[in-house]
């Protein structure tokens, strides 16, 4: 089949679509579903701007076919806020000034979420490894690492960094 019917959970909502077999997830998200928070940088898995969570695991959505998320849970940057309130990781990025041009930010936040879900109290080295698949060409890494550290603290104060959404 050159097209595939898929049903998946997108940011908590059941979503049914028919997609061309050769469409990547990032194109489905941006062009068909209008979720343009997820960015396309290199489009070949080097830069991490397109990172999303699939069943809670961070992946580059430019290297995943839309057909492959059938039956899965996908969380994009748009899915992190809760009733209009930003996620503590997003708040930390703003407060720490960890944003310059902003293009890498959604991917950075997704990688930070994946890290903090598993490791609520990371060392700076673990933070750097956690965001190693995300390139910031403004080279604002110092503030990004600060933001992830601050986010870990916020989540701990809010009662554990676990699987919050």
């Amino acid at each position: 089949m050159k097209t595939v019917n898929i049903e998946f959970t997108l940011n908590g909502a059941k979503t049914k679509v028919t997609v061309p077999a050769n469409m990547t997830l990032v194109h489905l998200l941006r062009k068909e579903l209008g979720l343009t928070g997820t960015k396309i940088g290199c489009d070949k898995g080097e830069c991490g701007a397109c990172a999303v969570l699939i069943n809670g695991k961070s992946m580059n959505s430019c290297l995943v076919l839309a057909a492959q998320v059938d039956g899965k849970e996908v969380t994009t940057i748009e899915g992190l806020e809760n009733e209009g309130k930003l996620h503590p990781i997003q708040e930390a990025f703003i407060e720490e000034g960890a944003i310059q041009c902003g293009y890498c930010t959604p991917g950075m936040v997704i990688s930070a979420k994946f890290l903090l879900d598993r490791n609520p109290d990371p060392t700076d080295d673990e933070i750097k490894t956690g965001i190693s698949g995300n390139l910031c060409r403004c080279t604002g890494y110092t503030k990004i690492v600060n933001a992830v550290r601050a986010a870990a603290q916020k989540l701990k104060n809010a009662g554990g960094g676990g699987e919050t959404r």
Partner: peptide, 9 residues
């Protein structure tokens, strides 16, 4: 190998 996103896939 790669980075977390690559290792996950």
């Amino acid at each position: 190998i790669g980075a977390p996103q690559i290792q996950n896939a």
